[in-house]
């Protein structure tokens, strides 16, 4: 696949934009074409929000991911809104602590991760998004762990060492599931 469209969808405040930024940065480190586009506006204030990321080997036209190759759904409204848009053969990762819904689609690969619960159990409150990032990277292979780790360093900033460790721990956890 020369182009991957990844859509993070959920509530504002769940770290959707940051998850997207980590992936886009990883793409940049691997010298690929990347784009990142948030939904903006009232969604920022707690409504449904999403973030489109593209990683590509060709120049990117539209940065809007309306038919995702990979969907990360972090709440029920987003899941219902986008599940039918995922391309056949696409990957869907859901936070099953928050999304309890079924689909009849047999042509997608669906992975359920109790990200919110696991993050609370593991002392990783507030970064369940990174557990999901770990899972999506493991299942899709769109980026290597090494690059991802470099991207976290770039996005978190070397000064915030504890946050750096938390994020990487969460990604590793997600990759182990």
């Amino acid at each position: 696949m020369s182009t991957s469209g990844i859509l993070f969808a959920g509530f504002g405040g769940q770290g959707l934009l940051f998850s997207g930024k980590i992936l886009a940065t990883a793409g940049l480190i691997e010298n690929r074409e990347v784009s990142w586009l948030p939904s903006y506006g009232p969604e920022m204030r707690g409504g449904t929000a999403n973030c489109s990321v593209r990683l590509s080997d060709e120049p990117i036209g539209s940065p809007i991911v309306s038919k995702p190759d990979i969907l990360v759904a972090m709440n029920i409204p987003s899941y219902h809104k986008f599940i039918s848009e995922v391309v056949p053969g696409g990957i869907v990762v859901t936070d099953s602590s928050l999304v309890k819904a079924h689909t009849d689609r047999m042509d997608i690969k669906r992975f359920e991760v109790e990200a919110t619960k696991i993050s609370q159990d593991e002392g990783l409150d507030g970064i369940s998004n990174m557990i999901l990032v770990g899972k999506l990277v493991k299942e899709s292979g769109i980026i290597s762990f090494n690059t991802l780790e470099k991207a976290v360093h770039k996005c978190v900033g070397e000064k915030k060492v504890h946050l750096l460790e938390y994020n990487i721990k969460a990604i590793k956890l997600g990759m182990s599931l």
Partner: peptide
């Protein structure tokens, strides 16, 4: 436009 303003690219 809003898309160019809001999107990130290298």
């Amino acid at each position: 436009d809003g898309m160019l303003g809001q999107m990130m690219e290298p």
